[in-house]
Structure formats: structure tokens, C-alpha cells
Amino acid sequence: MRNTFAKTFLEAAQEDARLCVVVADISPAGAMDQFRKEFPERFINTGVAEQIMIGMCAGMSMRGLKPFAYTIATFALYRPFEFIRDDLCYQDLPVTVVGIGGGVTYSTLGGTHHAMEDVAIASAIPNMRVIAPCDPEETRAATQWCVAQEEGPVYLRLGKAGEPLITQNAKPFAFGKVRLLREGRDVCILGYGPVLKLGMDAAAALEKRGISVAVASVHTLKPLDREGIAPLLAGFPKVVVMEEMVPHGGLGNAVKALAWESGARCRIDCLSLQDKFIHFYGKHDEILRAHGISFDRVVQLVGA
């Protein structure tokens, strides 16, 4: 996802001289290094200083440029939070804040590097839009939308690298619209981010047991596609929400609220990170398992 973002951004930046990147001491991977070489003035490294990363983006945007702030999600969003709120959102500036390693992607680095609450926090700010693509192709489409838009701030939550493709059979990405990755009849999985791969795998496994499972990427968390989600809640007897985020302030809460408001009668189960700092060090899938998110658990929940 990281490399796809960089490549897509570079391609856009070669066409649009207003696009800039402000990073806070993060190594420019892949195409970002090429961007730096081609446009040294438009690649700014503030060093380990995230408040000025956001402040500079605001000032550059005010003078007509289109800056992207880019670093690890916790440092992109939490450290300079009030700068994001006041400088970007309050003034409604078209700046994209890219958070790398959303959720517990940086599985061995400990809680300081886990962005477990980022979607809830970013969504809470007026004017902020929140996008969390699920695979490299969706990242490409989301990035293309971000570089083109001029309306206001965006939080773009990405994983790391090496995420598998899961959107091959989906219709094209549209900002703010839920995206069906897989058709089904019995259960509908709603989720976002790379963790949706577990949903796709579970759906394939359950198909063999005669359970037909649909999977939808809710890549745009804010504004939420209420018109797109409500029919799914009405049309399926059961819905499972998956998210690599704490259980509050995210998609699970929003779907349940929408079900109540729309009078849906489906059963809704939610799978999320726990409301806990877990001192566990292992691979990404292993820390997800420690939080209770695994292939077996998804199969059990969806197939029950």
C-alpha cells in the first residue's frame, strides 16, 4: 500500500506542480525517493517534528499548493492533533494527512506505534474526511481521489507493504460509496483496511459449506455511505462488521446506529481490536489474533 501510494502520488505530482509532501523523518520508500530527487523543493522533511509538519502543510495550502503530510499514523495524527484540528480542519484546507501503519500494523513496535483509535479520532473532527483502503489497488484509487480533490482535509489511513489484492472483481472505487468486493446472499461482511482480507478468506471457506457471504469495503468512513449501507442491512439477515480499530467510534458503532435509524432487523456482530493496550510482540496476524481477530474467529462468527 505504501509503495502504491508513493507511485500514484509521483505520477500525479509529475502532472501537477502544486503537489508537495511534508514528512517527519520517515524514509522515503520506493517512488517517494524518486519524487524527492525530481522535486527537491516539494519534498520537505521537518525531522522529528510533527507539529510543524502539519503547520507547514496549512501554510503551503493557504498559498495555493496541495501538500500531503506523511508519516507513521500515530505520529501523523496523535502528536499534532490540535494542529490538524485547528490548522487543517477548522480552516477547511485541502491537505491530506497520510497515516502509515494504521491499526496494529507495526506489530512488534509496541503500543506507541499502534494507531488503534485513529479512525474514531479523525472522524470526530468537523470537515475531516476519512478513507481507509483495503488493498494496493484501492489505495491507488483513493490516492488518485486525494490528489485531485480541492475541498478540504482528508485522513488517508494506509497499512504498510505487501498487502494482497482483494478488489480484483469489484466495481471501480468511488469516494463515499460502499464497494462490494464479493456477492453473497446469507451474510454480509462490512469492513475496511487490510483486515478485510480475513473476511474474503472466510467468505471463500464458508462458500464450500454452502454459506453465501458478501463482502463490502467501507473504505470511506467519513462521510459514511448511509444510503449504500442501509439496503445491505435491510437485505441480509446477518451482518458482520470487521475493523482494525478499537470498538468505539468506528464502523461497528455507526452500522448499529444506522440499523436502528433505518429500522433494519438484521443481526449485527462486530469484530474489532479490544479496548486494551495488549503488550504482545509478534507478526501482524499474531497481534490481531491476540486481539481476537483471526481467520477462525471470522469463520466462526460469520458461519454461526
Binding site: 502539519i54 507547514m56 496549512a58 501554510g59 503551503m60 493557504m62 498559498r63 494542529f83 485547528d86
Partner: peptide
């Protein structure tokens, strides 16, 4: 009015971004 201020310690960063943008431009 170029920028919304009020919370202190924000103006320097915004001004640096503005100044660098004018350099780029």
C-alpha cells in the same frame, strides 16, 4: 485575514509553510 489563529504556537508553523510556498512559487 489569512489564517485562523487563537490557539498559541500555531502561527510560526503556518508562516513557515506560507514562506516556503512562496519560495516554491
Amino acid at each position: 485575514i489569512e489564517a485562523s489563529t487563537g490557539s498559541l504556537g500555531h502561527g510560526m508553523g503556518i508562516a513557515v509553510g506560507m514562506a516556503h510556498a512562496e519560495k516554491i512559487l
